[in-house]
Write a protein that binds this DNA or RNA. Structure first.
Lengths: 339, 339
DNA sequence: CTGAAAGCGCTTACAG
DNA sequence: CTGAAAGCGCTTACAG
């Protein structure tokens, strides 16, 4: 059986489609009696407006697109949760796409979302994205776009971020304050802005404290995995036995390193102190528990949607969209991996 | 500037909308010359069919809905990834909703997806779901529905599952084979089918081996967290110091328990052996590494979408949908938490 | 207070 | 090979 339409209701009641439509939406110029009749019949017929028709007519679908580099990742899945929960409150649905850290895929997905005519787009960039035309196209076509976490400074849209540089500075400063003299940095990939900023924060802290910056102490790797942490911990022991502190780009890698150090009888924090980044829930669980920077994923998702929602509303009112940078607070969580 | 429409192209070229539409879709009854002209102009105007109009006309949107109890969860986010990756291959988009393990929310979300007229629905049930009317309604309305992981046996739709009972049986048997005499079970919540089945597998293994089943050794809890694992490990030490093996419903809880046992100087596996469930990537990382049941999340998501896709195709061809149960293989991964 | 009519942008059966 | 016409189901400016 096909779903009921306005026409069905109109015919049943012997009135016009126009009146039925208005009655259901409580237009003031429909009599109470008619409204009551229409609403009752709509109820019994289980009438639901055909979303496809409404979309076409209204040129909007109350659906947004979300592109994220990797779903299976505690931080990102927290962000997704924040976005979805906030979107649901405002009556928006979220289509999720995963770029797999690939610029090519990301570009295609932007195209796909545009052709599906989502109302707006939320994105965290792939590590490989260095060209931003696909994003500028979105903005040019007047479609609200909000970036979060992995952003491009050169794209003129709203962004929800943390101050990676400051957070990294604080993390490194904490290592220095607790007596570390030779501090390495597990940096991660080269391109993404937050990777760059965390590195710069690390470097600045060293300089401000009169410690020399040694490029050979900065370790670069593409995959942020537990195994990478193990591997680079070994590398540190081999290449730089004098290192007594490490600032690691992300908790998962830091935990891999801790596991490897534990295995090799390296004492944490006595021999080597470690600070991570993100405050993944496992960080408080391992031994020793990991000092880290708390990075509010759920909150970031929530704020990203909130900002997008504001822009969606502005657009509806034909008001100009004013890009905004929203910076969320981070904090250093001191645990047992530092003195 | 508004996006180009068929009409724009038709007017530019002085031909009809019909012909433009056919040309773009390579209908055989349009001349090569016309096709070439149309396609070229479409290209330069950056023509993209208006998805809203196509949806309305075709009564389909190539979009499916996914309802999942909790996104921030390694197993579920792997499933999501499997679903999305497969959907993308087939040209489908996925709207994701999170039920927060709430039956009420789940019901509302089903309603929402139905009113948005998604082509099909993928769902893993909330722990609280005991009434299935909302799901049967979906089926009655002829909308393809596939359940995965947390299913309801009573709903007549396709399901992608593992044999939880068998897997749990094997896990318990392994504890018995390695010499455990008094085996506890961290069961998790009461309602979900997989929780029930894992419990039944545990019980059956005990019985088949002539070991008495002791209900006081079965621990029930609603939240599957690391902390719950720590708490119940303590409880075991207090209430049942004679326990020498535990089969835990899920790795995260097992890892919490291991951490607590380590803290208390309980030797694993010498004093207590532990088997988990799911093969979370941290299971191989902790010390001792965790023996567990490998539960293929990504694969499950992939298969769930594949089955839904089959039903979507069947529906298009007006063929009847025949519900299918797809059972994925699990395996016991032996590590250091058992002898 | 009610309704006829136009239109959103597409697809396709049908006529020529 | 081409096109006029109907129709998907809704919304809303306009007339009465």
């Amino acid at each position: 059986m096909k779903p009921a339409t306005l026409k069905d209701i109109a015919e049943h009641l012997g009135i016009s489609v126009t009146t039925v439509s208005k009655a259901l939406k409580d237009y003031p110029d429909v009599s109470k009696k008619t409204k009551a009749l229409v609403k009752e019949l709509a109820q019994t017929l289980n009438y639901k407006p055909n979303a496809f028709a409404v979309n076409l007519r209204m040129e909007t679908s109350n659906t947004i697109g979300l592109i994220i580099p990797e779903i299976v990742h505690h931080f990102f899945s927290s962000v997704i949760k924040g976005i979805i929960s906030q979107a649901e409150k405002k009556g928006y649905l979220v289509i999720i796409l995963q770029s797999n850290e690939s610029y090519e895929l990301e570009k295609k997905q932007i195209d796909l979302l545009m052709s599906k005519r989502v109302d707006g787009i939320l994105i965290s960039l792939a590590n490989g994205t260095a060209d931003f035309k696909h994003l500028n196209d979105v903005i040019e076509q007047g479609k609200p776009l909000v970036m979060f976490d992995k952003i491009a400074k050169l794209v003129n849209c709203s962004k929800v971020i943390i101050d990676d540089r400051k957070a990294a500075y604080n993390a490194t400063q904490h290592l220095i304050d607790t007596g570390c003299k030779r501090i390495a940095h597990f940096r991660g990939p080269l391109l993404p802005q937050n990777s760059i900023d965390r590195f710069l924060g690390y470097k600045k802290a060293l300089e401000d404290n009169g410690m020399s910056y040694d490029p050979s102490l900065v370790y670069i790797f593409d995959n942020m995995t537990f195994e990478v942490g193990e591997m680079f911990a070994q590398k540190i022991l081999r290449e730089h036995p004098d290192v007594d502190g490490i600032f690691v780009n992300t908790d998962l890698v830091a935990i891999g390193a801790i596991t490897e150090f534990n295995r090799n009888g390296v004492k944490i924090p006595e021999d080597i102190s470690i600070v991570g980044f993100s405050n993944w829930f496992m960080s408080s669980a391992i031994t020793p528990s990991l000092t880290t920077i708390d990075q509010p994923g759920f909150e970031m998702g929530k704020m990203a949607f909130k900002q997008l929602f504001k822009e969606l509303k502005a657009k509806k009112k034909k008001k100009p969209i004013v890009p905004k940078i929203i910076e969320l607070e981070t904090s250093l969580v001191k645990r047992d991996s530092t003195k």
